[in-house]
């Protein structure tokens, strides 16, 4: 039994960590390129959950029976529209503030977060919404001696693999494509990048779109996993994902994933073996300790100050 508990708690933590990681990517990319905390990102994730449920209902209503087909279509549509929301938010609330003081976009982001939450509340109601359990079943994880050490549902496997896959794709884009190079250039020095002919407005918009797309992936999968959502879910997850991004070193893509997994493991192990009441206290304490030892996060590059 004991091996089972540890194994199961590790699995719980990894799944939770993958979710945090997927959302943390949005924070870390925007922070890396603009140096601002996009507080509205959690709400973009919330929007994507609603979009996914609406598209799923529409497709089911239109007579799409096959679950894989429906899921792929819903995923595509959700990514498309969530990305559209991400772009719009950047265009309306952040672009006009590009050259003002550092805190103006932060306040604007808080405002956007309130707008998105209440827009959804007014148009969809304050009720809890849900999507049906589409993928059923689980697999048992056995240790070498055949003892079951935990079980994973198919949805959870899907979440972890989607997180790894999209993270890999994103890392590949950043490293090997022109777009990725432009992103990195903009990240390092916006003015210089502009002088070299990079349309930084475009790049920033693209970053918002990519971040929102990742949030959309999370939105669909997480909703499938937990089954329900309301207009307020973005807040709690947003703060945790942001913590994960900072823990891993904000601006670093693998850092976001690593931070997410560490945070998820911290929460589930502390909750499982010590006390659920204090799991968030523990998670934040770990964050503070890590930052005291490594002020730029686990995988972040220490900023070199030049005079």
């Amino acid at each position: 039994m004991n091996g089972y508990i540890v194994g199961q708690q590790v699995i719980n933590g990894l799944v939770l960590g993958a979710i945090y990681g997927l959302i943390a990517v949005g924070y870390t990319m925007v922070y890396g390129i603009m140096g601002m905390i996009n507080f509205a990102h959690g709400d973009i994730y919330m929007i994507s959950a609603y979009l996914a449920a609406i598209f799923l209902a529409l497709l089911t209503g239109a007579g799409v029976q096959s679950v894989p087909v429906a899921l792929v279509l819903v995923l595509a549509l959700t990514i498309l529209f969530t990305a559209f929301y991400g772009w719009t938010v950047e265009r309306v609330a952040y672009r006009p503030l590009r050259n003002s003081n550092r805190l103006a976009p932060l306040i604007s982001a808080i405002g956007v977060s309130l707008i998105l939450q209440n827009y959804v509340r007014i148009s969809q109601g304050a009720r809890n919404q849900g999507i049906p359990a589409l993928i059923e079943g689980h697999v048992r994880v056995n240790a070498a001696d055949g003892v079951t050490i935990g079980q994973v549902t198919y949805t959870q496997i899907l979440i972890v693999s989607a997180a790894l896959l999209s993270m890999g794709a994103l890392a590949w884009i950043m490293r090997h494509t022109t777009l990725g190079r432009s992103c990195r250039a903009t990240q390092q020095d916006r003015v210089m990048a502009e002088l070299l002919g990079i349309n930084t407005d475009h790049i920033i918009a693209t970053v918002f779109i990519m971040g929102a797309a990742m949030a959309a992936v999370a939105g669909l999968l997480v909703t499938l996993n937990y089954g329900s959502f309301d207009f307020f879910i973005g807040f709690v997850v947003g703060i945790k994902a942001f913590t994960a991004a900072v823990l891993g070193g904000i601006g670093s893509l693998p850092g976001a994933m690593l931070g997410g997994v560490i945070l998820g493991l911290c929460e589930s192990l502390f909750s499982g073996f010590v006390n659920t009441d204090y799991k968030d206290v523990f998670a934040f304490a770990v964050l503070i300790l890590v930052l005291v030892v490594r002020p730029s996060g686990l995988l972040g590059h220490p900023e070199v100050e030049k005079v």
Binding site: I239, V281, F284, A285, L287, I288, P295
Partner: peptide
């Protein structure tokens, strides 16, 4: 004392965490 080594937004998230810790301790 510990956080003033950090710069800019790392400070922001640590203070955010501190605020949450205080609230959770009060609640628990």
């Amino acid at each position: 004392f510990p956080v003033l080594r950090m710069r800019g937004d790392y400070l922001a998230i640590v203070t955010l965490g501190f605020g949450e810790i205080i609230r959770l301790l009060l609640n628990n």
